[in-house]
Design a protein around this nucleic acid. Structure first.
Length: 424
RNA sequence: GGAAGGGUGGCUGAGCGGUUGAAAGCACCAGUCUUGAAAACUGGCGUGGGUUUACGCCCACCGAGGGUUCGAAUCCCUCCUCUUCCGCCA
């Protein structure tokens, strides 16, 4: 959520900035509602003040043993007026809130202006796509061997867009998770957390998935408002919801491995082959809760942490800054890391690192106490995948494939594979 | 799943339906004292919102949401949550 004060005082400028992300802010409606709100709120508070004052005097009179009936007669009708005003104020406020909750974050000035993903800008590239002296296979063909990746069985068990992994492939998948968590905790200063995979709607509102993007989620209990997490970002970031962190806890750097569940509504026909787009996938996530002046450095740092994983795995990738039309709802700036997939002869997203400024924190009321002022201030939130496990597995298979269909194990993963050097 | 008891400011912890945003203690900040520190003493010290150039004034908040009342932290209802005991169980 944006700062309501900013919306009031800089409405035109905010609307102008939002145009960059193809978002039309209904300025006229907001202005009208804001005017009504102001008038109504003043009226309501005046009535409340009157009621409080009179009630107090009734209390005094009663304590003094006076007859309070005349005073009671005076307040007759006040309650009704107050109730009416309150109801109206509440309605107006709800309309404003509904609009406010649907407004995306403001973009950082460095975000390039563009329409869609085609206008994203590559800012750096690491590693050289390997030249294979044979016809490369994609991960689906490679995974067919030994039932390593079994999509047919998964669709029997559940449906499309799920996978069963077997034997060394399942182990490699687990090795990637262990490896990434170890790097982030041992070398990057993150604290590992284990979190629930089901969250309530308050948490989803906090990070911005609700109310706008409910169709992307799996709901497990409509009545309780419980959903499967689409990313660890939701439970991990919401750890700070409603909290005031002490200065020595900031920045708070957390990492977590979780499965992620996405309904992928509206992506029919997209990436239907293989593991690129699944309803369930695993991810190691990094989250940083920082002060406002640390936010942009934190985004660079966290992005570098994700890149480190790719470098250690020796997977070629490029870093892309998303253009204004492609940045997600809650983010102010996003870097995507795209890994080279020989099977597709292209770079594919494997990590997304974003700075949300105070957008999520305001929704969550996640704050820290600034010792300089002694006052609570909104945190800034930064997060990114470090990395998506399924896609990393795909990248390892395709990049490390041999002509005979076997797959070499990247050097850094060997300790996690119990001495196995090659999947055969 | 059954039974009982709790949820109050950064923490601990009082609170009869009425001048209680809320005692007290701790912590914290400032000052006095001291060579310095500690102790002691004095004062300050919640959050959100509205309004104002500003000083300030006003409103809301005692787990959440309803209700009763002129007036609710205090009474009633629903829900959430925590603790303890019993049962069941990976």
């Amino acid at each position: 959520m944006l700062d309501p004060k900013l919306i009031r005082s800089e409405l035109a400028s905010v609307a102008e900035q939002l145009k960059k992300r193809n978002f039309e802010l209904d300025v006229a409606t907001l202005e009208r509602l804001e005017q009504e709100r102001k008038a109504c709120q003043i009226e309501t508070e005046q009535l409340q003040n009157e009621r409080n004052t009179r009630s107090k005097s009734i209390g005094k009179a009663k304590a003094a043993g006076e007859d309070i009936q005349p005073l009671l007669d005076e307040v007759a009708g006040l309650g009704e007026k107050l109730d009416a005003a309150k109801t109206r104020l509440h309605e107006i406020q709800q309309q404003i809130d509904a609009i406010m909750m649907g407004i995306p974050n403001l973009l950082h000035e460095s975000v390039p202006v563009g329409r869609d993903e085609d206008d994203n800008v590559e800012i750096r590239r690491w590693g050289e796509p390997k030249k294979f002296g044979f016809e490369v296979k994609d991960h689906v063909d490679l995974g067919a061997k030994n039932g390593w990746l079994d999509f047919e069985t998964a669709s029997k068990l559940t449906g499309s867009r799920y996978v069963v992994m077997r034997g060394q492939m399942a182990k490699l998948h687990r090795a990637l998770i262990q490896f990434m968590l170890d790097v982030h905790t041992n070398e990057h200063g993150y604290t590992e957390v284990y979190v629930p995979y089901i969250v309530n709607s308050d948490s989803l509102r906090g990070t911005g998935q609700l109310p706008k993007f409910e169709e992307d989620l799996f709901c497990v209990d409509k009545e309780a408002g419980h959903y499967l997490i689409p990313t660890a970002e939701v439970p991990v970031t919401n750890i700070a919801r409603g909290e005031i962190l002490e200065a020595d806890q900031v920045p708070m750097k957390l990492t977590s491995h979780t499965p992620c569940f996405r309904s992928e509504a509206g992506s029919y026909g997209k990436d239907t082959r293989g593991m690129i787009r699944q309803h369930q996938f695993d991810k190691v996530e990094m989250v940083q809760l920082v002060s406002a002046d640390q936010a942009w450095d934190a985004l660079e740092e966290l992005t570098a942490h994700a890149e480190t994983i790719l470098q250690k795995l020796e997977l070629p990738y490029r870093t892309v800054v998303l253009c204004s039309g492609d940045v997600g709802f809650s983010a102010a700036k996003t870097y995507d890391l795209e890994v080279w997939l020989p099977g597709q002869d292209t770079y594919r997203e494997i990590s997304s690192c974003s700075c949300f400024t105070d957008f999520q924190a305001r929704r969550m009321q996640a704050r820290w106490r600034n010792p300089e002022t002694g006052k609570p201030e909104l945190l800034n939130t930064v997060n990114g995948s470090g990395l998506a496990i399924g896609r990393t597995l795909v990248a390892v298979l395709e990049n490390y494939q041999q002509e005979d269909g076997s797959v070499l194990i990247p050097e850094v993963l060997k300790p996690y594979m119990g001495g196995v050097e090659k999947l055969v």
